[in-house]
Design a protein around this nucleic acid. Structure first.
Lengths: 102, 102
DNA sequence: TGAACATATGAATATCTGTTCATATTTGCA
DNA sequence: TGCAAATATGAACAGATATTCATATGTTCA
């Protein structure tokens, strides 16, 4: 039987993780990347075009988002296709946007 | 009749605002402040104690959060009592924490 | 009025973060 | 095999950001 954490207890580490989670959404380039991926998976070249950032900047940011497991990817020939990791990411973005749009 | 924005159209500026919103949640001290305020209003001294940050650091961060209208305050004698601006803030925090706690 | 308390502010500093530039890696194809 | 396309990586730089320290402001009360 797998050990389960008690979700009702908020540790200091949880608060650090929470800040880190939001940090991932706190940069314009990353937001543009995530927002573009809300409509479906895209290769790097498409993301470069959608964000207006350089290929290098996009690649660096994709790495960060991937490390946070907010996005995942698969290879398809020469291309790498990125997509949102799960619905949670979608929901958080949507909720933030609702707030911005009041 | 007041002009209404079309909420279905996402502008580049919206994406900037969205990043800024999440930026407010992206620092450990600010998260601790907001999280403490989820359980109810608190004066600065209490917030200093809960966060473990210095009085000055807390005051600086409170100012930022207030400017974003994520928190508000009222004076009560010598003290200043801070509280979350609205339920939206509460919801965003809760949703983020749900994700962290998987 | 003056002392003590609570909070806010400004400047300086150190750290963190994102971008750029140059280059490396991987893959498909002639 | 060699070249071109797609993406990733590393180092360096610039700008942003959080904290600290010193001090200012505002409030209560004796």
């Amino acid at each position: 039987m797998p050990k389960k954490k008690d979700k009702s207890i908020i540790t200091e580490e949880d608060l650090y993780d929470l800040a880190d989670l939001f940090k991932a959404f706190s940069d314009t380039t990353r937001i543009k990347l995530l927002y573009a991926l809300m409509e479906g998976e895209l290769c790097v070249a498409d993301l470069v075009e959608k964000t207006g950032a350089t290929q290098s900047a996009v690649s660096h940011q994709l790495r960060g988002l991937k490390q946070m497991d907010l996005i995942r990817c698969r290879k398809e020939g020469k291309q790498v296709i990125y997509f949102l990791a799960d619905d949670h990411v979608h929901t958080i973005l949507q909720m933030g946007m609702d707030h911005v749009k009041e």
